[in-house]
Design a protein around this nucleic acid. Sequence first.
RNA 1: GCCCGGAUGGCGGAAUUGGUAGACGCGCUGGACUCAAAAUCCAGUGUCCCUUAAAGACGUGCGGGUUCGAUUCCCGCUCUGGGCACCA
Length: 910
Amino acid sequence: MDYDFRKIEKKWQKRWAEEKTYKTVEDPSKPKFYVLDMFPYPSGAGLHVGHPLGYIASDIYARYKRLKGFNVLHPMGYDAFGLPAEQYAIQTGQHPEKTTTENVARYRSQLDRIGFSFDWDRSFRTCDPDYYKWTQWAFLRMFKSWYDPQMDKARPINELISKFETTGYDDITPEAWKKASEKEKADILMRYRIAYQGETSVNWCEGLGTVLANDEVKDGLSVRGGFPVEQKKMTQWQLRVSAYAGRLLDSLDSLDWTDSLKEMQRNWIGRSEGTEMVFDTVCGDVHKPITIFTTRADTVFGVTFMVLAPESELVDELTTPEQKEAVEAYIKEVKKKTERERIAETKSVTGVFSGSYGINPLTGEKVPIWISEYVLAGYGTGAIMAVPAHDSRDYAFAKKFGLPIIPLIEGADVSEQSFDAKEGIMINSGFLNGMNVKEAIEAAKDYVEAHGLGRRKTNYRLRDAIFSRQRYWGEPFPIYYKDGIATPIPDEKLPLELPEIESYKSKNGEAPLARAKDWNYKGHPLETSTMPGFAGSSAYYLRYMDPHNSEELVSAPADKYWRNVDLYVGGTEHATGHLIYSRFWNKFLFDLGYVCEDEPFRKLVNQGMIQGRSNFVYRVVGTNKFVSSGLKDKYDTTEIHVDINIVHNDKLDLEAFKAWRPEYNDAEFILENGEYICGWAVEKMSKSMYNVVNPDDICETYGADTLRLYEMFLGPVEQSKPWDTKGIDGVNRFLRKFWRLYYDRENFLVCDKPASPAELKALHKLIGKEQEDIEAFSYNTTISAFMIAVNELTDLKCCSREVLEPLVVLLCPFAPHIAEELWEKLGHTTSVTVASFPEYKPELTVEDSVTYPVSFNGKTRFTVNLPKSAAPADVEAQIRAMEQTSKWVGEQTIVKVIVVPGRIVNVVLK
RNA sequence: GCCCGGAUGGCGGAAUUGGUAGACGCGCUGGACUCAAAAUCCAGUGUCCCUUAAAGACGUGCGGGUUCGAUUCCCGCUCUGGGCACCA
């Protein structure tokens, strides 16, 4: 019987679906293991061969863990709210729900063909009201909470209210609170809520008609769509992610993530320890103290000017009447620029003098205050002390506007550029003179604190997340406005469902929901913006634990059993978006006691991208002649992408090419060795390059098991690599060879005779290797080991059930369909999924050995144990020769002797 | 500019972390089976010298260093992938 993968795969996929083989239930008698993939956004293009890479890797791990006796939760769903469906809706008028449903169906059928062990009963889409109810619910919890810096966690807002009422808090006294109107109280609370509304400088994207979060903008363009983005002051819903900056940073250490990913998050959070220092200022006759932030308190003796951010409120207060006109002109100029222009002009230095002066708190010296866009309003205090000698940005500014530069470090040459390094001996710095920079920083901090001039302060770059989008296809905010006060709708009214509307387009910055009919709650207007894409993906991993619970996001028992994700697989592109927001969201729920783990994802593996491998033909300019790649240098040619489906191993199918496009009907070819060889390049997989490979096609030609093996065999999971079908025959051959261990043309070969030592050895070598490699996520080497084992067993003509039965189990994680089929043929009535991973017996791999004494200077120093196979007679001669030629160093001990068949290669000493 | 990572045959990639470099697969060459093809199997395949073999020399981006021994560790470069980018 031949290996008929089409029949086998269809049969088992059907049976898995019917019998719900991978349905998971909580089982306290087994240890749990939670394997999660970053769920896909179901786009219209469907899956290409790159998408399943991570899913295959995690599926192998999930299946492996099941065999190891774990109760594995391995769910899948869809991140279905988002821009593409909505943009498509705007163009076609089709409801995004409809396109989403169609795309999800397509994704599902593609995923099903690959044979994943997902528990589909737990699946949901983020746009399902039953799910987004819990996104809205979590938002309301955030709205009703504040971050208590004393306890360093989120607490119910009522606790803050009672503080206001009894003891007062911050600048709010009980009297002031009592006197405040309802609206004023609401405004005060808004300053503390975790989910709050506030005016901020936002990334406004005109092309999409909405604001965007920082991670949705790259190089001044929107990540989705690539439209220009500008800075705009707007009132928006925001999440107080910045309150969690310290915790998000600190608990990174406890996570099993790659160093590079942790580093990315560290940079994004951007902790910096410095000092806030108060400078008195003089604007005409008016004195006003302002606070600046610096990490180089030691350089305070070198301050020669100060700078304010153009957006800072201090600008108005510190501009003198004489300078008013110039300052206003400058600010107008700055505001006109988009984010992109600001980035492009990074090198140019601009600024204007405010007319005011600051007073150096240590020296009493008067320095001018300038305004420049190189200082950001959103970081620190929006005002800095400038030390041109030791900060390159201040230096550039000082040079441009002719401001003095005072060097503070011995030997630093600041005639051409600033000296930014934190090293050297301080000079020109009063009591700091003679110290090295590190000491001076601490000494200056101490001095500032001791003299009441400021205090130590840790700042973070991480900003609060902008949470409103002026779009349709997202979760509506469960908020209505009663007398202008944002008020939550009651929990029992959730979900607040998205209304139907006529047109999905936003007009003049007005959100689509503003045009929805009856969009109100008891006559009060409802919030018209919707939540961003990351809202729905921030807690989805919790919902999989208990997806049908209508009372809670996740029940306490389910949460306590599954706890958090043990293995999370997905791309690096979410490093600073989803993976920060999810951690924030989880910590928030943890603070309020809704979940039992502080961190959502214990181990994270980033799968690489699979790039496309494009093929080219070369048309001789001005003709319809195409020249083979090897000869193209002899002609003047144009490179043209050609559909990779009509190219096999870089050889062009000439007839198919002629038929591909009408203009090529009468194409002529200049061949080399009778063939047309195409050129190639590694590029992104995309329609326009004709290099997209659909997994369905591979399943059709080679089978899902081959696809799975091949994607893993291509190289390490973490690495990006081009899709190249060249090697796929190799793994396909392996599977056929595997099949032939059990079957010849007609007969089932497996028998009950005991296995020979050689057969057992081949098996156990594989068990050991597979176990070790899967744990290390090194699937390509596992597959290599498998190929070796199968070759050995083929050579041994192994037919013993004792070996062949565990072999099927070992193959199951990689190629589940063929494993199931053979498992059934071996007489089992249950799925191979419930088998257990064979036990590794390392002693079966150790060979009989021979012992040789080795002596130096006439004395036996050690003995060498060599495996018999590696130690033919003349090895002893080698040892004797070594005794003659090597010198014995008394203190060293022999650790290992390296032997290749026939000779000693090296002696390991320690 | 700053911070990570990578560089190994014709190709994808191995190498128990300092110990046989090139596992495994692809490709290629030759052979067997076949009328033929497909499939399958066997042998060879880093480079150089050589008719061949043996033997040898050289070989993990480049230049140094440590070591009995370096793909692995250290110093200095080159190229390359990714992230951040006025964060005071």
